[in-house]
Design a protein around this nucleic acid. Structure first.
Lengths: 249, 249
DNA sequence: CGGTAGTTTGAACAAGGTCAATTGAGGTGG
DNA sequence: CCACCTCAATTGACCTTGTTCAAACTACCG
């Protein structure tokens, strides 16, 4: 249950404490990076179009609601929450972003970010300055095709999410949420049996449309039923099939 | 309380019974049609890329879940519901599509439609065969740029929708739903004070995550409070400010 | 060591779901 | 044209679920 040894990459400043880093091939930005041949020595991508490994501390803001849209980001390590502030002043969590996932695509059609993105733990990102893509001299068609795919996936995912969340009980939502985190980590080649639950209970509640007390209660219940193990912000899935069964509607 | 006389348009084949048709300039597909100069006599768009006014009867299916993705559609008149069938067999309504709105964009990143689209009343659509766009000889970049915008809007809309639906009470959801229909009609230049509620109470309930009985109860309550007027499938908003106040969270 | 914020747990309460009975509308066939 | 059938919509009674309010507890941070 201790810390998993970190994979030591080639980053000059050393690995990021507190989290593993997703490999480039497993990253959601990879289709675009590939087009840019960014990895190649002679890629000749102009300076500042694609910026790698920007480290952020816990609580740091990547961009704020209303900031002018400039870039989309890929999480390399750590985790973010995306939330909007309502006219009433209350905050609503829109989603969480794990390593390999993109942040900011929802702003691509507008001129400013509709939400704030905040690091939940020490995190690093890659930044793609979208407006400067034409400078790269790469086929705009190919890049656009990649962006269309990214967005299409996002739309499909959102539809899926809406229709499931709204029809599910609190227990279904929470077991589904845990499985979703685990599956997304697995997809990026990261440890997914045990992982950080770096967001607060209120964040989870806000995201799932539940009171934080309900989240807490149900997590306790799942633990008592030996389906999961919780220790501080660390979660371990003990009985994945049972969780999957619970989460089905 | 009687029926308001329908505005009779100038469509050659006569107006479509039961609904008005959206003008091309107000249609969500217009950015793409414009690129294609489709309206121009000499547009030389190959036959079958953009097909206009395909009439569908109530209950007709535009495409089914699992059908290979070919086209995106714009509703010209009438209304559609979009729904998915769960492994359990139950149906979940993902959304409703009014004149001027697009259907099928959520399939753009995949190879098949993830949902079924069904006409709720006599309806007509324009169809854009996406795979044949390159044949038009138009700048692919411009077309892709339009598609990116469409998708980006869809993503932003979905986020908005998730975060609002999940945090709202039944009353807020339903008053918000009525206002949303009205606003969307207004945006397309269609009558929006009184309009068809062509979907069933169960459809509304499935979409909003409520039991159909709850939908019925709350509609009755809104009517008793003189905020709306209901007569069969016809709805009229009597006190829009009050509805807006109700729908705020 | 104390202060603060997040978490857990309990008890009362409210919202909405479920079940069931009734009404109403549209469609069909005699 | 009317009787009948079917299905959607409405309404009531009851019950489950999750929220709210409040209190105790825990980790984290000076």
């Amino acid at each position: 249950m201790g810390n998993v040894p970190l994979h030591h990459g080639s980053a000059p400043a050393g690995p990021l404490p507190g989290g593993l880093e997703v490999a480039c091939q497993a990253c959601g930005l990879d289709p675009i990076c590939s087009v840019l041949d960014y990895a190649a020595e002679d890629s000749r991508v102009p300076e500042g179009v694609l910026i790698r490994r920007r480290p952020l501390l816990r609580g740091a803001v990547l961009f704020s609601q209303g900031d002018p849209f400039q870039s989309i980001f890929a999480v390399k390590s750590g985790a973010f929450k995306l939330y909007g502030t309502q006219p009433g002043g209350q905050q609503r969590v829109i989603g969480f972003h794990l390593p390999g996932e993109l942040i900011g695509v929802e702003a691509m059609s507008g001129d400013c970010y509709p939400c704030t993105a905040r690091a939940l733990e020490k995190s690093s990102v890659c930044e793609l300055r979208v407006h400067r893509l034409p400078e790269t001299g790469r086929s705009l068609e190919t890049i656009q095709r990649s962006i269309i795919n990214l967005l299409g996936n996002e739309v499909a995912f959102s539809h899926e999410l809406i229709s499931s969340l709204i029809h599910q009980s609190a227990e279904q939502r929470i077991s589904g949420f845990l499985l979703s985190l685990s599956n997304r980590l697995q997809r990026r080649g990261l440890p997914n049996e045990e992982f950080n639950l770096s967001m607060s209970r209120s964040d989870i509640g806000s995201y799932l449309g539940l009171a934080s007390e309900t989240v807490s209660r149900i997590l306790s219940k799942l633990q008592q039923a030996r389906l999961i193990l919780l220790h501080r912000k660390r979660a371990r899935l003990l009985d994945r099939p049972a969780l999957e069964h619970l989460s089905r509607s």
